[in-house]
């Protein structure tokens, strides 16, 4: 009985992070009268991937990142693979760098996010430009980057709430 419960708990722990990212991003895709929203459509993906991979690497892996990338590519009409590579880059940076910095302290976590997302968006800028054989507007990419860094604390609160409410494994796992 306990084994079955733990099995379901592990499935939930792996599905909750991507679902939490997709659900919040759907709200960002609603058409609005202001152009400002266009620059933050993918912010829930960036913040979510960074948050879950740095704070809960046990419940978030490369496959989740890959699938989220495919969804982001289709939703934002990017060539398949561009967002996948960007998200994998962000995931790689977040998992590697979070081992050196205490990400439980929010200011450090934010700083690390700023660093990871800057490198990831620059990487995306490069691969998109190479793909199209034309430089895409850098100022728009920088605006997206700044807004992403600014909004991170707000979305991190949401992910912290999801984590505490749904996948706090210590509380949910039973001893076999």
């Amino acid at each position: 009985m306990a084994e079955t419960k733990n099995f379901y708990a592990s499935i939930i722990s792996y599905t909750i992070p991507p679902i939490s990212i997709i659900l919040i991003d759907l709200l960002f895709y609603i058409p609005r009268s202001s152009d400002f929203w266009n620059f933050i459509r993918l912010v829930p993906f960036y913040t979510g991937i960074y948050f879950w991979s740095s704070q809960r690497p046990d419940a978030f892996n490369g496959i989740s990142v890959f699938l989220l990338g495919i969804i982001a590519d289709v939703m934002s009409a990017n060539p398949l693979g561009i967002n996948v590579m960007t998200f994998l880059c962000l995931y790689f940076l977040a998992t590697r760098l979070s081992t050196y910095i205490n990400v439980k302290r929010f200011s450090y976590s934010w700083l690390l996010f700023a660093l990871s997302i800057t490198l990831s968006i620059m990487f995306k800028f490069l691969i998109t430009s190479i793909f199209n054989r034309m430089w895409i507007p850098l100022n728009a990419a920088l605006l997206e980057l700044l807004l992403t860094i600014t909004i991170y604390p707000l979305l991190a609160r949401y992910y912290i709430w999801v984590e505490r409410r749904y996948i706090h494994l210590e509380d949910r796992y039973e001893k076999i």
């Binding site: 990338g69 398949l80 561009i82 994998l88």
Partner: peptide
């Protein structure tokens, strides 16, 4: 992780060639 990177790169290249499987995935 490196494998996933390679698959993503292949997806971009395949998208450039424009074959049916990519549009089916989309």
């Amino acid at each position: 992780l490196a494998g996933l990177f390679i698959i993503a790169l292949l997806l971009i290249l395949v998208h450039k060639i424009d074959i049916t499987i990519v549009s089916s995935v989309s």
